[in-house]
Every structure is written in C-alpha cells, then in structure tokens.
Nucleic acid binder design. Sequence first.
RNA 1: GGAGGAUUAGUCUAAUUGGUAAGGCAGCGGUCUUGAAAACCGCCGGCUGCAAAGCCUUGGGGGUUCGAGUCCCUCAUCCUCCGCCA
Length: 421
Amino acid sequence: MLDLKFIRENIDLVRQNIVNKNEKANVDNILVLDEKRRVNIQTAQELKNQKNIVSREIAELKKSRQNADDKILAMKEVSDKIKLLDEELSQIEKEILDIQIFIPNMLHNSVPIGKTSEDNLVVRSWGEPKPKIDIDHIEIAKQFGVIDFDRAAKISGSGFAVYTGLGAKLERALINFFLDFNTGISGYKEVMTPFMVNRESMIGTGQIPKLEEDMYKIENDNFYLIPTAEVPITNLHSNEILRPDDLPVKYCGYSPCFRREAGSYGKDTKGLLRVHQFNKVEMVKYSTQENSYEELEGLVCDVEKLLQALKLHYRVILLCSGDTSFSSAKTYDLEVWSPAEQKWLEVSSCSNFEAFQARRANIRYRPTHDSKPEFVHTLNGSGLATPRIMVAILENYYKGDKIEIPEVLQKYTNFDFINKI
RNA sequence: GGAGGAUUAGUCUAAUUGGUAAGGCAGCGGUCUUGAAAACCGCCGGCUGCAAAGCCUUGGGGGUUCGAGUCCCUCAUCCUCCGCCA
C-alpha cells in the first residue's frame, strides 16, 4: 500500500506507474475523498477538544456537588455531532482504503519500462547448457519410478504429483539441503510456520484482494492455504516496532505452497511445471530503508549459491515494469535451463517490496532511539521452489540408464544415482 | 464442544467501585567523574504539524452515558477445569 500523503503529492507519478505496470487501478476519486477526510478530521477534533474541556468542568462541578445540568445538556448535543462525524469519517476512510488497496507499488527507477517478458533484461548467466535431450521429465519420471502423476490425479486431480520411492527421498533431500545451506553459510534463521493463515495476513503481503481468485480458502473457518511461506513469515512481525540493531532480520522457512492457478489453464501444464501444491523454501528479509537494495542483491546471491552448488545452468533476469508484480518495487527472476523443453524455467523470484507490505501489515522500526517509527522494507525470494529444480535435475543429470544425484545432495539422499525400474 | 478466570505502552504494576491512565524496572540523553558505578535532572504509546498545540490510545469491534480501564454485548488470545479425539 502506498502512503496516502505520497499519493496526494504525486498523483501523476502514481497514474504513470499503474500504466507502466500494466495494472488497471482507478485513482480518480481518491484526492476528493482525501480532502473530505481531512476537513472532517479537523472539524471533529475541534468538537472533541471542546468536549474534553467541558467534561473536565462537569467533573469538577460534580465533585463539589454543584449543578451541571446545562453543561451536560450542551455536551449531549456535541456528542451527537461527533458521533455523526465519526461515522462519516469511517465511511470515507473505507472508500479510500478500497481504492488504495488496489494501487500497485511504485517501481524502483532502475526497473526497465516494458510491456512483456520480452522486455526483461538478462543480468548474468552461469554455467553452460547441456545438449538437447529427446525425453522430457514426465517420461523420465515414469521410467525411473520417481513421480506418479496418474495416481495423483486419481486422489486429488490434475496439477498434483505423488513422489514415490527414491523420488520422494530426493524431494525431501532438496528441502533439507536448501534449509541447511540457507541457515548455515547464508545466516538465515529457520522458522516453521502454520500453512493456513487468516485474511489479515493475506492482505498484509498483498495477495488479497488483487489475487484473491488464485487463493484456496477454507470457508468454514475463514483460513487461507498459503500460496508461499512469504505470507506467514512476512506477517510474523505485523503490528510490531523492531529494534534497529536487529535489522536486517533474515528468516527462511519451508512450506508447501497452494495455488489455484486460475486463469493459467493450458500454460506450462505439463507434469511438474505448474502444479496446485508444491514445496518451497522461502527466504524473507526485513531491512532498514537505506539498505534494502543492497539486501536485494545479497538475496539474489544467496539463491545463486544454491544453484551453483547443484551445478545447474541458470541466468538472472531483471523484470521489466510490466512483468513486475503488484506488490514489488523491483524483482529479479532466476531461471534454470531445461534441456528437454529447450527453454528457461523460473525457479526463484527475488523482490524488494520496500514499505508496501510493511505499511499494510504495520511493521516498523525506530531508526534511532529518539526518532519516530518508520516502516521497514521487506524482501523475499525463493530459495528454492522444488518442482522445476526436480525437472532440471531429472533432465540435466539424466544418463540414459540412470539419473545421477548432484554431489551436494548425496549426503541427504544416501544414494548417488537412481536406476531405471 | 462446555464452565470459570485473565488481557493496561518494551516489561512489571496501580487507578475513589463511572470523573478523563499514577508509578517501578529496562532503555536513551545530560550533570558529575581519569573512566565507570552510584546519585541527580530530563526523555521514554501513537497520529497530524516547522512549531505551538490538538487529537487518539487500557487485546479487537460495538453499546449504555455529558463522561468508560471501570458497566453491558460480541470476537480474539492466554490460563485452569470438564468432555471428546489424534
């Protein structure tokens, strides 16, 4: 969410930013409502001041057992007026919020302006592409008995996977490797959170209201299944004021991720490429305002270390304005090469949300002991999501009659190759 | 699911049984000191504002009242007990 004062003073920039992001928010009424709001607050405050003064007088009169009937009568009227104004105000503020909550975050000025993924910038790449193979991960998975898509469809539906045998062990090894690496060398604190959250949390990180259609909801109890651990981890410190010495706070946590993928039917539907439930280790940072872009670069490096350890050919992409998500100010995507599909697969998305989420979730810090609280900057990145990494491993480590296990994973799997069944 | 109790600022703890949140600790700044401690002075919930000042704040939301930390309703969380279940 953007600061109302910022919107007021930079309405043209806000409008241009909406266009740049390919969004469709309507901000026309917000300035009128804001003006009404400020007039209302001023009037109400004057009346409240009067009420407070006279109420003290009434208290004095009552203590000395004098009559205060006329003052009480007058205050009854003032109270009614205040009540009316307050009701108006909450209505106005609700209308403002309804607009404000659909306004996307401002882009950082280093983000290239562009419409589609065609306009994204390749920042760097690492490793070399493996030669093309004529078998895709679905067929490999079948031949080696590591994933059972048919039975997953039977018990749940399309867009799910059952990992079986050594495949399940490999999946578990990936999760453990990511967690150990991030909490070790990279210095993140591990958390394991609930996988269902309340509506406030979903609003806090910006999934709701804009992406509401893509979320799974538990109707009976008003919970949402998390689409990423970003939601519970970023909201961990909602309504708190953090100590500046503690920043940057760095968390990482595993969770399954649940996504309806409404509106993406027919796109990347093959096998593991787009599923309704997948495993991911997420990294979240809370930073001071000054350091957040430095922290973003560091976050990308932390993710790159994982891919390098797995010896997977990857590239780092800076998303253009039109491809940058609603809540983000700047996003880098990391993509691994698929020798079967002959294309890049997104495995991580690292974003700086600046104060956008912090303002929604009310997460602040006091820069110095005598200063007012400021909103922290929040960042997050996948480190990493497993399905496409699994695809990349099956394809890149495919040796015809066996699949090798990347060296760093072997101490987790306790086997160093998988044979055909 | 049922019964009872609790929730006050970072933390602890008060507030005439309805009269407008008092203090302790921790923390920060200062005086003093070679340095530190102690002692003393000041700051120490939030919002608007350059400031003066004003407004808001007792877990959240409503209600009664001229006036609510205090009375009523409701929700959340925690504790104790009962029931049910992994």
